[in-house]
Design a protein around this nucleic acid. Sequence first.
DNA 1: GCCAACGTTGGC
DNA 2: GCCAACGTTGGC
Length: 160
Amino acid sequence: MNYWLMKSEPQAFSIADLKSRPKKTEHWDGVRNYQARNFMRAMKKGDLAFFYHSSCAVPGVYGIIEIARAAYPDPTAWDPENPHYDRKSTPERPLWDMVDVRFQREFKRPVTLTAIKMQAALKAMRLVQRGSRLSVMPVTVKEWNTILKMEKMAASNPEE
DNA sequence: GCCAACGTTGGC
DNA sequence: GCCAACGTTGGC
């Protein structure tokens, strides 16, 4: 099993949105970056991913989702009405893929980007590398467990 | 709203 | 194939 991190702008699609979907499942469409697409192609059903909220007041990891279906063609790429339309992709020759993700759980408190940056054990995490803008990226087992520990600490910390 | 970093496009 | 221009991402 592999671990991942997937970014979304919460105003467009948040973890609460995913939770409220039928079967708590949704397509992760709209990825238009080759590296991110290739990571999605490496995903297997049952893999877990952090749901990361970006471009918002408090960027960070807000919960955990599960890969419910491995990569398959993203039809929004050949819909001219879609903001992520790409004329290079056709139903005959799909260029972009998506996966299906299922809500697993939401953190009581997010593990914020600020906290991640302060955590020495996460110095090498792809997310915090200079200029890293990938919306889909792998997470090592160590990084995964470190963030889960941080989540527990944040949840038991009565700061407010 | 600003800006740095990055990916893509297109002229040559 | 180079590279400048442009668009996008995403933190601040």
